[in-house]
Each structure stands twice: as C-alpha cells, then as structure tokens.
C-alpha cells in the first residue's frame, strides 16, 4: 500500500472503531443484550484472531509455508499454557524464530 492509502486505511478504521463504540453508548441496552448477539460477537472475535494466527504463521500471504515461525508459535503456546505474561510470550516466539534462522533454518 502507498503512504496515502495507508493513511486512509488508518483513518477509516479509526472512524469505524469510534463509531461502533459510540453506537454502543447510544443504543438502548436491550438491543444488544440478547444472548445470541453476545455469543456471536465472542465467536467472531475468536475466529478472527485464530485466522490471523494461521495467516501470520503458516503462510506468506498467498501460499502455505512452513518455516521458523511454526516452531516459534509452538513455543508461544507452551508459554501461554504456563501462564506467561503477554510480552514474554511474544519475546520467546521472536527469539525462537531468530535463533532458528541464525542456525540456518527457516
């Protein structure tokens, strides 16, 4: 993306984010308090995040690729299972991938 397109993307996404937040404050609570709306929102969040994990770890954007990012994600999963804080999870994953590449793999 060019600089201008990136700026438009940033500003439109920001406007949409604020619009959603403000809409939540303005609509009557019972409109959004249904069990189905709450549940669907939670599931959409899960699906988006999991899909982003997959796209960021197992692809180069247009094809499926296995490289140093995959063992790095496994390290992150172990750290999360051991209740490591966010930054430690991220640093361990980055460090694992960097170490593997320094050794000449991925």
């Amino acid at each position: 993306m060019t600089t201008t397109v990136l700026w438009v993307t940033v500003l439109v996404a920001s406007a949409a984010s604020f619009g959603l937040k403000l809409a939540g404050h303005l609509v009557p609570e019972h409109w959004l308090a249904t069990e189905r709306v709450q549940r669907t929102s939670t599931l959409v969040t899960v699906a988006l995040l999991v899909s982003l994990v997959v796209v960021q770890t197992f692809t180069d954007g247009s094809s499926v690729v296995v490289d140093a990012r995959v063992p790095a994600l496994a390290v992150a999963a172990v750290a999360l299972a051991l209740r490591a804080p966010f930054i430690l999870v991220v640093v361990l994953a980055a460090g694992s991938a960097a170490a593997l590449r320094a050794l000449g793999w991925g």
Partner: peptide, 29 residues
C-alpha cells in the same frame, strides 16, 4: 497489511474485531 491484504480487508477485519466494543458500550453506558 503485513500479509499484503487490501485496504478494504484491513478495515473490515479491524472493524469486525472492534464490534465487541459496541457491546461493552451498551453495558457501561
């Protein structure tokens, strides 16, 4: 953006993920 997606896809993904903030707004308002 990093994966080479279009601006529309970037905005749509970001906005969908922000939809839960609308539910939060309705709760705290």
């Amino acid at each position: 953006v990093a994966a080479g997606g279009s601006p529309v896809a970037a905005v749509a993904t970001s906005t969908l993920l922000g939809a839960r903030n609308m539910l939060y707004g309705a709760v705290v308002s």
